[in-house]
């Protein structure tokens, strides 16, 4: 997944596409924000799990980048809440898990079933991340 994505020049992102980047490591968030903004996205960064979930549930985002280790709520809890129709009646955003943490096999299977994408942050530079996001329909 990580480095298999070659930059595709023909794909230009929709100008109004909104990204919610849920990431508590400020330096990483800063790099992603910069790179994605340069690529033409409208980026919101949030580091608190609860606030991020509330923001995601407004359904104003096209893409959610979700770190699995965030304060107040784990990424997996956020993922489940977003996929639970009782808690999140509608969600058009694609959810991409961004993590450096290796999961146990069963957890990974669970994540794979619920998320739209999964990437290891260390395997991608911010540029490569933007290229990857560009390929999301």
């Amino acid at each position: 997944m990580e480095s298999d994505q070659t930059p595709d020049q023909t794909l230009t992102p929709h100008p109004t596409r909104k990204i919610l980047c849920i990431e508590d490591e400020h330096f990483i968030a800063e790099l992603y924000d910069r790179s994605l903004t340069k690529a033409g996205y409208d980026v919101d960064v949030m580091s608190d799990g609860l606030k991020a979930l509330a923001a995601a549930q407004t359904d104003t985002y096209d893409i959610i980048l979700l770190d699995l280790m965030v304060p107040n709520m784990t990424g997996i809890e956020i993922l489940r809440a977003l996929r639970d129709p009782n808690q999140t009646p509608s969600l058009r955003a694609k959810i991409i898990i961004t993590t450096n943490l290796e999961q146990r096999e069963d957890v990974r299977t669970d994540i794979e079933a619920q998320a739209d994408g999964y990437l290891v942050k260390a395997e991608m530079t911010p540029h490569e991340l933007a290229d990857f996001v560009n390929t999301i329909e």
């Binding site: 790099l31 910069r34 450096n100 290796e102 942050k121 911010p126």
Partner: peptide, 21 residues
């Protein structure tokens, strides 16, 4: 080991990111 890997990967992500900038 998984935890150590996580701790190593985070600074690596940053290093690679800033070098790219």
């Amino acid at each position: 080991i998984a935890l150590s890997v996580h701790e190593l990967r985070t600074p690596l992500t940053l290093l690679r990111g800033y070098i790219e900038v």
